[in-house]
Design a protein around this nucleic acid. Sequence first.
DNA 1: ATTTAACCGAGACGGTACGTCTTGTCTTATA
DNA 2: TATAAGACAAGACGTACCGTCTCGGTTAAAT
Lengths: 196, 196, 196, 196
Amino acid sequence: MVSDTDHVPPGGKAGRPRSERARRAVLHAVDDLLVDVGYAAMTMKGIAERAGVGRQTVYRWWSTKAEILLEACLVDAEEELTTPPRPDAADDLLAYLTALTEFLTTSPAGLAYRALIGEAQHDPVVRDLVHQAGLLALSAHDVLRRVRSSAPNMPDECLCAAQLTGPVVTQILTTPEPLPERLLEAHVAALLRAWR
Amino acid sequence: MVSDTDHVPPGGKAGRPRSERARRAVLHAVDDLLVDVGYAAMTMKGIAERAGVGRQTVYRWWSTKAEILLEACLVDAEEELTTPPRPDAADDLLAYLTALTEFLTTSPAGLAYRALIGEAQHDPVVRDLVHQAGLLALSAHDVLRRVRSSAPNMPDECLCAAQLTGPVVTQILTTPEPLPERLLEAHVAALLRAWR
Amino acid sequence: MVSDTDHVPPGGKAGRPRSERARRAVLHAVDDLLVDVGYAAMTMKGIAERAGVGRQTVYRWWSTKAEILLEACLVDAEEELTTPPRPDAADDLLAYLTALTEFLTTSPAGLAYRALIGEAQHDPVVRDLVHQAGLLALSAHDVLRRVRSSAPNMPDECLCAAQLTGPVVTQILTTPEPLPERLLEAHVAALLRAWR
Amino acid sequence: MVSDTDHVPPGGKAGRPRSERARRAVLHAVDDLLVDVGYAAMTMKGIAERAGVGRQTVYRWWSTKAEILLEACLVDAEEELTTPPRPDAADDLLAYLTALTEFLTTSPAGLAYRALIGEAQHDPVVRDLVHQAGLLALSAHDVLRRVRSSAPNMPDECLCAAQLTGPVVTQILTTPEPLPERLLEAHVAALLRAWR
DNA sequence: ATTTAACCGAGACGGTACGTCTTGTCTTATA
DNA sequence: TATAAGACAAGACGTACCGTCTCGGTTAAAT
């Protein structure tokens, strides 16, 4: 008589587990490709090939190149946007804005982030991803919390963050040159005048 | 008024003259498609078909969809961003920022402009096009010139424009909701405090 | 000194025995799928899923869908092609050819067999499998042995089988309609005329 | 008055005409690939690449590799199956069956034809194509018409063709070896005995 | 009673063909 | 020379299946 029991494993997850090696290879491939060929020329096919990974494996875990890029750059980004506290409020803000400028114009992670903001204008899904990551807001709030004591007249935190970073970011997104150091100083001075 | 005909060239060069009819059809098609299917799904092929125009005709006069879009939206954009002067500086600035917000979140021309800013992050050619148009800077300078008299301490004009529009624009580009009226007022108040 | 208990398992095989349940499920799945989706759309993946069986389990026991199909249909086929003897030679042959026609145009096992003949034209491995099974030849020889006595002039047995079944089979394989009853009768009459 | 017309050409066909060069390249590629890699391993992608032709160009004019193959082999096939008349009926039939055997076992066009018959068992569309081409029937009818005078007792033409070619074709399709010359002779002799 | 070897299901893996789409160029006939 | 139409070579799209692999878990014969 033949037993009828080749039964399903009762709990837990069946099947081969996800390959961490493949995941990392994809994230690295995206980093490399963004620098090598740019966002527009970066394709899902190209990512898979560069990573030495099956195409389906990419699609299994990410829907779009934007999703991969976000995962690839988020950690680096957060780190690069964290500046050490400085005793003087003006110095503190200036250091942050300098780091922000550097990040968005030079750092690979920053270029990725700019590409994502760009894509967000075309694709509402990416828009939500980018907003949910909240990279800009988070890093700005950190530094703003520190200067709060020396700027008693600061308005709504959200507006403050916008006032602090908006001019810098918009300049970078819409013109070929970022605000120069000199104007960053003037910007910080004006902000502190308004918030004091 | 533009003739709807492809009339005989009165003088100058031989050959069939450019069809004004085709040019207009393409610009209208781009406008329609941006609303109907969005920037990402808009293709040169689709534009030609929607315009009832040969594909080659599109490529003959424009290189990319961004170029067409820019030509299609610039005139409307400039008009929508021009606000009538108001006696009070705060009122003047607020009216401008409200118009700017409206433009970037609601107007077809504004959505086109946002798409172009997005594309500019991926493609340096578009970046140059967008910067050369200088839409934001130009419209901001208009209103800033008017409030200059009542804000003697205004810094560099370029920084001023950035300080005025940057927070509003960045908010729109990176979050799902623009700055609300209330925060626009607070923003203007803070700026005038800093500039006075 | 050599341990007496360290030796290779002497005979028989250790390990879990093959699951008869899985084998049957696969064969049934193939039968069902051939009818439901056709040979071309039948895939190893689909078979495994329909059978509720792991993919590896299928590959462990069969190499190709053709192999499974052959195992699934052979028994049925042999049975359907065996006709009871009839006293009159013409009747006997006609009954066989009618059964053969029915088999190849209607019976699931016959459709499977036709699919296998088709695949055999593309894949020499399948060709060998099909030939080794020798379905057609075997069944034809049975009936030919019975009419041998009343057809003294019959040539080589192999040619006889070909002359008997070839016209019927080729017609089915290359045209949408099989030879009708009327022509089967004429065919049998002609054969007996030639062999008498 | 000025014409408003970039209008559709009133009759005939607009646009670039079909490239005869591309058509020929595809047909040759299919011929080559059938011999080089076999029918099963022949893919639409491979055909396009071997032909130096865009994939879309292949799909524009043919739906499946079977369709291409049919177009590629039909002309050759018809020629190879046409045998010159011989005075003796037995000689005439034998020459035809020898050519048929040669064709189906050796000639590239014949191998293509066999592949098509194979595919026809899986795909009703191909089945119709193959039947509509009617290669076997046509060539058989030619030679049968010639022997008609010396075989007054011949049955229905359709059955005759089946009786003539069926045994030969089925043997080739279902076993590794075709009927040898000796049995072809015996087959022809038997047929003439039956038809006389 | 333990070990051990082969089985089982599920499902991720690297590949690759599918048929469709868009790209930018080209080749027509017509204007 | 511009135009609309549409074929062309190229190649990315996202999906499907290939055959292999890697899991956790089962089963029964051999220790």
